[in-house]
């Protein structure tokens, strides 16, 4: 199988992560700096604001894209690191499949959280 498409999507996922996770981190962790610039987001980890985001379709789509991008980029990166350890092709096949299954499982579970609450 050709490796190029995997790596091309990893770069595209990186660009998506750069902007979306960047936004997420600014909102979640840099509240004081944001309010200094006049954008008060309230307490982002309070139960009410968490629920507010979870009930919004926009935020759910946002989290869905972030999840897919980060899981793909991260798990492919992990697989690339493992692939440099000179494991046998059979072991690599097992690891590749395991990472795909685990990744899809985590994606489904994590997306279920904002949808169900």
């Amino acid at each position: 199988m050709r490796e190029v498409p995997l790596r091309l999507w990893q770069l595209i996922a990186a660009a998506v992560i750069f902007f979306l996770v960047g936004t997420h981190l600014i909102i979640m962790h840099l509240g004081d700096i944001l309010s200094f610039f006049g954008a008060d987001m309230g307490e982002p980890t309070a139960w009410s604001s968490v629920m507010e985001r979870a009930s919004s379709a926009w935020w759910t789509v946002f989290y869905g894209i972030v999840l897919a991008a980060v899981l793909y980029h991260g798990f492919l990166g992990l697989r690339n690191v493992i692939s440099e350890l000179s494991l046998s092709p059979a072991a690599m096949r097992v690891i590749n499949r395991a990472l795909i299954v685990v990744g899809i499982g985590i994606f489904a579970f994590a997306l279920y959280i904002p949808i169900s609450t």
Binding site: R2, E3, V4, R7, N80, S83, E84
Partner: peptide, 12 residues
């Protein structure tokens, strides 16, 4: 290019 495309090629 097909010789260097596998994960142990240029991507390493």
């Amino acid at each position: 290019i097909s010789a260097v495309d596998p994960y142990y090629g240029v991507w390493g």
